[in-house]
């Protein structure tokens, strides 16, 4: 029952690997074409997403599940933006474009700005000298926090140099080690999928 999808995965996966090594312009055109296909498939998946969004939130409103007014706002926004897009297009100056840049963008920026508060709160809780390793982490964190901003240089001229060393030597060494591990893990997972060893994505749990 799974032979068809596994074969398809193998053929597409092996083709894409081969295309990586073939710089011929026609091969690269095929590569671009395949990437376009992925975009088209994604567009169809968005229909599934919209259906899911609608059914989940409609159910929440019907059953008055906690937070249901938010679901109402979501569905209203879904219908409203769809209507704007269909009626007046999706250009920069269209109502949808303006809605995007005047409502969605500021909201996203506000959410991102909250990160500073979350970082401060997490740092206060996590950086405590419970043992030798945690103490090392704490001292390094303080040196980095002070040394990476102008005030560090104001306090001691050697701070920027010290933080550069911390970033360039211990930090980079650890990052490279983790990155090599991640890279090999990713190659291994990709090969397992292409060869049909890993079939979780087909819904097979064993």
């Amino acid at each position: 029952m799974y032979l068809g999808p596994i074969l398809l995965t193998f053929v597409v996966g092996a083709t894409l690997i081969a295309l990586y090594f073939i710089p011929h312009h026609q091969a690269q055109e095929i590569n671009s074409e395949l990437l376009l296909w992925a975009t088209i498939v994604y567009a169809f998946a968005l229909i599934l997403g919209s259906v899911s969004l609608w059914s989940v939130h409609a159910q929440r409103i019907r059953q008055r599940i906690s937070g249901w007014p938010f679901s109402l706002v979501t569905l209203f926004a879904l219908l409203g933006t769809t209507f704007m897009g269909v009626a007046w297009g999706i250009g920069e100056e269209s109502p949808l474009g303006r809605f995007y840049s005047m409502v969605n963008s500021p909201l996203a920026s506000t959410m991102f700005a909250l990160l500073a508060f979350f970082i401060a709160s997490a740092a206060f809780r996590a950086f405590r000298a419970r043992n030798v390793e945690a103490t090392l982490l704490l001292v390094t964190a303080i040196v980095m926090m002070i040394g990476r901003v102008s005030v560090g240089e104001f306090i001691w001229r050697g701070f920027p140099g010290l933080t550069e060393w911390l970033l360039d030597v211990p930090n980079l060494a650890a990052k490279r080690a983790i990155a090599i591990g991640v890279g090999l893990g990713a190659v291994s997972t990709a090969l397992k999928i292409i060869l049909g060893i890993e079939r979780g994505y087909l819904g097979r749990t064993r």
Partner: peptide
Amino acid sequence: PCYDPMVMAIMDGVARQAYRE
């Protein structure tokens, strides 16, 4: 909760299969 609709569809299939098993 899913960010990507395609991931959602696949996750749904995986979960249904797990319940079936």
